[in-house]
Design a protein around this nucleic acid. Structure first.
Lengths: 215, 215
DNA sequence: ACCTGAACACCGTTCAAGT
DNA sequence: ACCTGAACACCGTTCAAGT
């Protein structure tokens, strides 16, 4: 009957999905496990360590994907990209599909859990060795001929863009759900489709910029 | 001798700069003003409202700048941008300098206060009407001939990128200052110069992508 | 090995009552 | 108009002591 690390982690993810990041407290989590708050500290050193494990669960789809495989047919969401200069070349299409697919996979993973982006952002800021979602992107760019420094900078930029976009969307959704005033800067209905559209646009712009720095 | 709204705001910014976002609590702020915690709620409805005012102070350099003026001579930090196709044209150079300068101004404003990026990110997620740092960028892109929807998407992407970069840098700095283990994923010394370099690279890549969508 | 009980040092927010 | 005093309902974390 004794709790183990996995039980705590599973319940933490479930609590996150049901109540959100703000209500994912050690005390509430302990209560939902039928245990005293102090009991959790036998399984996890502190809340940060628990959140790291939660972030690993969220990012699992990104971490297990390798760079060579593009697991999405239409990464942009707004039709095929206007690649322009080279229409029949294979290597250019390869890195573009890999990087675009990786970014879309990252975005999907973040949006798959309530406040997933905010949890990941708070964890990534501590730069844990075990959690580097940029790796597949860096690998794809290096395989396409980009230098190490530039590839890392480009991957970091895409991580920041993707996480930033997802954090913003989820926090806004949460604010609307809580009935906060002062939202809806413009009159536009900000649905998921529009957000995906905007994300795809920014992604394509960045990929176009990268294309100019690759053979 | 009575406190006013401005006194509370000024002290809040000072507390942020001295102790960081995590230690900017209503109780600590009240204590530093020689007052009971409840007194603050006469001047600000709640902590969110106070943070909104703090974010306005932080973003002041961005909000008061207009789009037509590029207040930086070298927006990239890595020399003149390889604009490529058009060397002598004026309109292309104009929007590029305006957008690049705006992004650098935004980044500088965020880094000018301890945890400034995190404060701004938490406030921007609520989409307050009074605080839209993207406006100058949207205006510059529209003036260059870009459509409303695309201009807003591009500006949002740059805000997410810039804020994400700054949040990451500041949180990492804070983590290092607090002596957290598990940091420094790679052996590289991550100083301010290197961070500025990486930010400039990603910015230039995005601007190159935008150049393809403008006349 | 795993958990309880109880404490420590905090939070944001409200609100009658004072001046 | 502006603030106090005191409470309410929370936090993360520690640690002796129990089983």
């Amino acid at each position: 009957m004794a709790l183990n690390r996995q039980d705590v982690l599973t319940q933490a993810v479930a609590t996150l999905d049901r109540y959100g990041f703000a209500d994912l407290s050690m005390r509430r989590l302990a209560a939902s496990l039928g245990v005293q708050p102090g009991a959790l500290y036998w399984h996890f050193a502190n809340k940060q360590t628990l959140l790291l494990a939660v972030a690993e669960v969220i990012l699992e789809p990104v971490l297990r994907s390798d760079a060579s495989a593009a697991d999405r047919s239409d990464p942009a969401g707004e039709g095929p990209a206007p690649s322009g200069q080279s229409t029949g070349e294979d290597p250019a299409a390869t890195w573009r599909a890999a990087v675009g697919g990786w970014a879309q996979t990252l975005r999907s993973a973040l949006l798959a859990h309530r406040d997933g982006a905010e949890v990941v952002a708070s964890v990534l800021a501590l730069r844990p060795r075990s959690l580097d979602p940029a790796c597949p992107c860096v690998a794809a760019l290096r395989a396409a001929g980009m230098g190490e420094t530039e590839a890392r900078a480009a991957a970091a930029a895409l991580v920041h863009y993707t996480v930033g976009h997802a954090v913003d969307a989820q926090t806004h959704a949460q604010a609307v759900a809580l009935g906060v005033r002062e939202v809806h800067r413009d009159g536009a209905t900000d649905d998921e489709a529009a957000a995906a559209q905007r994300f795809g646009f920014g992604l394509e712009v960045f990929l176009d910029g990268l294309a100019r720095r690759l053979p």
